[in-house]
Structures are given as structure tokens and as C-alpha cells.
Write a protein that binds this DNA or RNA. Sequence first.
DNA 1: GGACGCATGTAATAGGTTACATGATTAC
DNA 2: GTAATCATGTAACCTATTACATGCGTCC
Lengths: 185, 185
Amino acid sequence: MAETSTLGYALLGLLARAPLSGWDLAQRLDMPAGYFWSAGHSQIYPELKKLERAKLVKHTKVEQRDRPDKKVYALTAAGRRALRRWVTTPLAPAPKRDELMLRVYSLWLADPADAVAFVRDQEAVHRRRIAEYETHQADVEQHWAAELDDPRSPRFATYATLRRGLGYERELADWCAWLASRITS
Amino acid sequence: MAETSTLGYALLGLLARAPLSGWDLAQRLDMPAGYFWSAGHSQIYPELKKLERAKLVKHTKVEQRDRPDKKVYALTAAGRRALRRWVTTPLAPAPKRDELMLRVYSLWLADPADAVAFVRDQEAVHRRRIAEYETHQADVEQHWAAELDDPRSPRFATYATLRRGLGYERELADWCAWLASRITS
DNA sequence: GGACGCATGTAATAGGTTACATGATTAC
DNA sequence: GTAATCATGTAACCTATTACATGCGTCC
């Protein structure tokens, strides 16, 4: 029996690093900022209420002069425990849904010229993302070198996911290049 | 205006290669057989009815002596055209949802020993999948070498997705190994 | 006055999973 | 008879997306 949904854990994971408002959480989980989980604000506000009913988070009203007031959510001790327990719980294999692969599975039907254009376009998308991630990586390695050796610092965890994102995008872009050249030849 | 849902295209993609019954389609889209799309039979049977109403597929009853009768679905000319059009249509960036990365993002909270065990376990899962895919790859390369050079053969498309699956799993397993050793040191 | 960013919510719809339900045929 | 495989369907629930809805404050 999970204490909350996966989205709930995503929110707890962000709040474990710093208290945030619903709007702030939505910023971080909206594409393209959310590297590996995403959600719109219409999903986040109700979820925060659930988490609060479950006593995993609590909010405090913060009045602002220059902007509308907001509710800032923070983890409770129980919320932190639940998150900590969840992170190393056995992970059930999730069904994959990759639309690019689904397209490629039927790409033999297309005109080869169209197929190459499609695949080269995908490659460009991922090369752009690689450049973006590389900038992040360089920044992180320069400014937080010390923390990247400490597996108990949040920065270490962020760095690990960034490395994975880079590896993923590189492998994908290279595969696109391989496929495009293979169709051409 | 898409002519059908992504699941619909997944079914069309399978039927473009050979006519199949709902049950056969479910076999191919059930974990772990479906490499990059999955669906249960409760989603497939209604979807086939939708596709038939849209005249993208048609079924014929096939009586069997040794087994229950079945409905075998095949693409119509319109279905084939719709699929062909769809494969190279610009692909909208999809929101990512990767629970493993979500766990790792909060892994700094866990005891390092638990964290390493968790990551090593994940690595093992993906190494097993690599071994499986490698067997497939060897089979395909041996038996269908000629077709793998023809971008208009379905076998070529399957081979391309298999290569991608292998690249994905290798990158992931290697990243797990990197992370585990980084936590340990 | 209008656009933009901040801020919070609800409603309707679509997509997906789990559970319920039935029935044929074969092998043990 | 009973379990396993083949075969087809519906219902209930959960998750996620898109659309609707409101309102403050700043800048132009």
C-alpha cells in the first residue's frame, strides 16, 4: 500500500529540497523543465490537498505586497519518512510508451526520403537538448564540485539524473544518425 | 486532426505486417513483449471496434475446431494510407515519466548502503534485458541479413527498434554501474 | 485599457489499469 | 473435474490533459 501516488512522491521530492508554492511546483514539473516527471497545475493543486490530508505536507499562507498571496508547502516529518522509505522500495517494471519507436516500427511504409527527413529532424531535436544539458553539467561541475562527491547531498542526486539525461539523449541522437545513414545507403 | 489515437496506430502498425485477432494483438502489446508500446486486452477490443467504425480495419470471423472461434482483423486501404501518413508526421515532444529517475532524484535521503543495493538491483534488471535483446539481434542478423539492408522491409524497421532498445538498455545499465560506484567511493 | 506574470482553483474529457464476466477446447 | 490456453467482451477506477474560471499586481 503506497502512501501516495507517484505524482505525490514527485512533489515530496521537490519539497524535500525546499518549501514551494503550488505555482512553483508547477513551474518545475512543466515541460521542458521537468527532466523526468511532468504535471500541470490542474493536477498539482488537488494533489497537494491530498498530501496535506495525509499529513505528509503542511502549508503556510505567505502574504506578498508586490504579488498575489500564496500558500507555501513544506514536508512534515512523516512526509520525509514516507519519501525516504519509497526511494529504495523495489521498482515495478513500468510499461514503455515511446511514440518515436512506434513510428519507426512502421517507417518501412514511408517513402525513404520522407523517412530520412523525419529521422534527421528527430536527431536535431536531441542534439539541441544535449547542448543544453552540457551547459548545465559544466555549470554544476564548476560551482559545486565538492558536493558532487557526497551521495547524501541533493546536488549529488540532481547531478546523477543530469548525467543520465545526457547519456539518454546522446544514445538517442547517435541512433538517429545511424538509422538515417542506414536508410540512405 | 489525427485519424485515430496513438494506440490505434500501434494496432495498425502490427496489422500492416500481418492480419491478427484481438487476442494476438494483446499478446504482442502485453509486457514484456511490447518493446515500446503496451496495452491490455480491455483497451484493445474497444479500440478495434473504433478502428472498424472508422473503416481503417475490417474483420472476418475465423472458425477453429481445436480452439474458440476468433475475429481476424486486417488493414483496409484507408488504414494503410492513414498509417503511412502518420509515421513521418511531426512528432510533438511528449512529457517524460521515468520513475527510476524520480527515485534517484530523492536518493540522497536514503542510507548509502540501501541506495547502492537499489541501484545495483536495477543494473541487474537491465543487464538481463541486454542479454535477451542480444540473442534476438544475433538471430535476426543471421537469418535475415539481406532484408536488413532494405529500408522498405518491415524486418528493417524491427531491427532498427531492436538496436535502439539495446542502446537504451546498455546506456542505462552503464549509468547504474557509474552511480553505484560513485555512491560507494 | 490591455498584456503579462503570479497565483489558485474546478470541470470535462481522454487514456490506461484492474477487476469482473463468460465461454470454448485441450491436456492432465 | 480442474487447470491452462485461447478468445472476447464490459465496468469501475485512477491518472493525465485540456479547457474553463477567477483575481492580484506591474509595466507599457
